[in-house]
Structure formats: C-alpha cells, structure tokens
Amino acid sequence: MPAHVVLDSPVGPLTLVATDGALSGLYMEKQRHLPSEGTFGAPGDPGAEPFATVAAQLTAYFAGELTEFDVPLALHGTPFQKRVWAALQEIPYGETTTYGELAVEIGKPSASRAVGLANGRNPVGVIVPCHRVIGSTGSLTGYGGGLDRKRYLLGFERGIRGGDGGATLF
C-alpha cells in the first residue's frame, strides 16, 4: 500500500511516494504527467523508511554534499521506460547528455523521441536525473517539472562542481 509525504526543497514542495519500503515517486508541484493524488496513498510518517533516508539524501544533495543517490527505488513502467530510467542514473552529476546519445547508450539509436517520452514519464525526478538530458543543439528541452526547475538543477549542479555558487548553464 503506497504512502506519501511532502518535503520542502529549493525547487518547491516535493511529494515522495513509497511502495513496499521503496521510493516509487518523487513529484514536483504542477508537474506534467502527475498521477492522481489517489495513487499516492495515505499520508506517511516522514521519520519512517524510506522517507527518512530520501529526505536526508535530498537535504545533502541540495546542500552540495551529495552527488549520487543511494535509495531503494520501485519504478513502475514499461521495460523500455525502465531501461531509459536506468541509463539516466548513469549520467554523472554536473554533466549532461542528449536524447540521441541516451538512445545510443541503451542500444536503440533511432529511438531518441521514444527516449524523450520515457524521460518525461520518469516517476522519480531529481533522484533519477532526467534533468540532465538536453536537446541535440545543447538547448533546454521539455522537463516534467518545468524548464525553470531544469535550469535551476543544471546550474546548481554545475555551480557546486565548478565552485561558482550555482550559476546557471544557459
């Protein structure tokens, strides 16, 4: 039975959804492809697992102290979506890739549009870093949490890595 908690963050409130002790959703306010709230389950205990671990890791991430998440995930999607989401988790902190490069990475070089669609359906934003995927020209493209949040996350990661205090990339 799923449960949820809401955490404050620099990108606004984040709704964390857990199923069977693993994180199955991390949703931003006004996110595109947001499931109905009925699927979030009952309010959970923020001190219980996995919420406590996820909250601690998100706090460390936004403090610039964590560059790689290690939380149990229960991602629900098609086999193709799961391949894309697994590949997203391999993109290093502070770096970006394109939809085309990601398609090649998963062995489907002609599937960049399908990769983009799967990317947009990522149920665990930030932790499964779909914000690190950009257009082939280097431009920001769609992001389920909104382009302002994508710009913030990319700039934040680059700022921590480059020591320039969170300047944006674009």
Rank of each mutant, 00 (worst) to 15 (best):
R158D: 13
R132K: 10
T59M: 04
G135Q: 15
E65V: 07
G146F: 04
G144Q: 14
N122W: 07
T53R: 12
M28D: 03
V133H: 06
L73Q: 04
G21M: 03
G142R: 10
G162E: 14
L34W: 03
T98L: 07
G155F: 10
R151V: 14
T98Q: 02
A87H: 00
L117C: 08
L7K: 02
V6I: 15
P46E: 05
L88R: 00
P109S: 07
K82H: 12
A48S: 13
R132L: 06
Q31H: 10
E95D: 11
D148C: 09
L75C: 06
E29L: 14
E37C: 05
K82G: 08
C130N: 15
A42Y: 00
E90A: 12
L75A: 14
T19Y: 12
T15P: 02
G162W: 05
S112I: 08
P109E: 10
L23H: 07
C130W: 06
L153D: 01
L34R: 15
G47I: 05
V133W: 00
E157V: 11
T78F: 06
S139F: 05
P43V: 04
P35D: 04
E95Q: 13
A63W: 04
L102F: 00
E105I: 00
E95F: 09
F40W: 12
T19E: 14
S136W: 06
G25I: 01
L23C: 11
V6Y: 01
D164Y: 09
L153I: 10
G145C: 07
H76G: 09
V84C: 01
P46Y: 02
P72S: 09
D148F: 05
S9H: 12
G135S: 08
A118H: 01
L7N: 04
Q31W: 02
T98Y: 08
T141Y: 06
S139H: 14
L16K: 02
W85L: 03
D8H: 10
Y143N: 08
Q57I: 04
C130P: 06
F62A: 09
E101P: 03
E65W: 11
E37G: 10
E157Y: 09
F80V: 01
G146M: 05
L169R: 13
N122S: 12
E65Q: 15
F62V: 11
